[in-house]
């Protein structure tokens, strides 16, 4: 078929993987790279569970055909921190009770990171706008917004 070699920078490493043109980035990440942090909640860009950062912007990886990722810099939840050195957002989500079932969590954190990468002083409304594409059914968003706010304080120092 039209299988091609997709080359992109994934979590800081230049990565090559065989892909079909009609494959979406989320499936490449989950099925081929075994990075299951990005979740599939709808497959139609309506829930944000699959959010990753591509070239600095939060995107729904279920809406990114493989070729759009060619040469791109992609960050996923697995790449922003680990148990020994958490990203401040991961830390504040843990500390402030912003995680319940956890299915939306990676996506929300990636949306929030894309925001904080550009704006370290977001208002409540700016945070809500940045994560409005991430459906969470558990938290009522209260502790999520608080966690993003406190991470921004922490990063600012």
């Amino acid at each position: 078929m039209n299988t091609f070699k997709l080359t992109f920078t994934l979590n800081g490493e230049v990565t090559e993987v065989l892909a079909e043109p009609s494959e979406m980035l989320v499936d490449i990440l989950r099925e081929k790279m075994y990075l299951t942090g990005a979740k599939k909640g709808c497959g139609k860009g309506e829930c944000g569970a699959c959010t990753v950062i591509m070239n600095g912007e939060a995107v729904n990886s279920c809406m990114i055909p493989a070729m759009k990722a060619m040469g791109a810099v992609v960050e996923t939840i697995e790449g922003i921190g680990n148990k020994d050195k958490l990203h401040p957002l991961q830390e504040s989500f843990i500390n402030e009770g912003a995680i319940q079932c956890g299915y939306c969590t990676p996506g929300v954190i990636m949306s929030a990171k894309a925001l904080l990468d550009k704006n370290l002083d977001p208002s409540n409304d700016e945070i809500k706008e940045a994560i409005a594409g991430n459906i969470c059914r558990c938290t009522g968003y209260v502790k999520i917004v608080n966690a993003v706010m406190s991470a921004s304080q922490k990063i600012k120092g």
Binding site: G45, E57, A58, A132, N134
Partner: peptide, 9 residues
Amino acid sequence: VGSLQIRNI
């Protein structure tokens, strides 16, 4: 339009 993720694309 949509959400930020959509507007970014």
